[in-house]
Amino acid sequence: MTPLTILRRSAAQRAIAPLLVVVSALMIIVGKVDQAVFESIRVSIVDHLAAPLALLSRPMTGLASLAERVRAAVALYDDNLTLSEENRRLLQWQQTALALADQNRQLRALLKLVPEHARAFVSARVIASSGGAYLRNLLVDAGSADGVARGQAVIAGEGLVGRVYEVGLLTARVLLLSDLNSRVPVIVERSRQRAILAGDNSPSPSLWYLDPAAPVRVGDRILTAGEGGVFPPGLPVGVVTAAGPGAPRVTPYVRLSQLEYVRIVDYGLADSLPPPVAATPKPGLRAAAARPNRR
């Protein structure tokens, strides 16, 4: 290893490091007091970083798919048996689903039910995930140029992933269900009980504000409640996997740490999410944000 050398610095050079420390600390405080200050800068910088990040994520995805191929080749026979069995069962379910869909259509026609919004969606690749211990978010390579807007639901496979909370021209940032700041109004499918699914940076978010008289059970399905106007009702979220003495834990259907592609769905509700407000909202700002914006 090379020898250490003496560092010679002028007075000006010596002064710059403490100055930058102070600037950093000030930025933390300013960012905490007014969270919207850095948002526009952040969004434009992230748009510029999209290309290198997307490039770097390719080999990683390649390695993961290679490992998956090797695993699949080894487990080919077993997988085949499992899949044949599953296929047989799914075909039965398909018949049931078709019958139910038909019946549902007839009943809706009888009730003259308002049809649900058409949903448009874009698929996007995950190009960065926050590498910190205290953040759970993703950066995807679709932005306002692709029709992505703040508040849109992000799903993968059949489960909810989170929602869009920052949009650039080419990129968007997704707040995962597991993030400390994530709160999603949900409903317990079996009991129709409402609760809030609160992230705490662990892989399994917890259920808050449950009615103690109607306890949830392990295996209960959790769906979005549609309250708050961010998500449509009935999106599958996860399954209760721990219903101990503390707050029940929900394991999301989607493995949030292993996402490569997500779908950003426009349910026509995105406009109803208020913009990020300062910690001390000015009079009138909140009223403007809370303005009903339904269709």
Partner: peptide, 17 residues
Amino acid sequence: DLAAGEIVGVTPLLLLL
């Protein structure tokens, strides 16, 4: 910090320290 959605200033502060 900007790219990761971290609170802006935390990483520069820690690296400088």
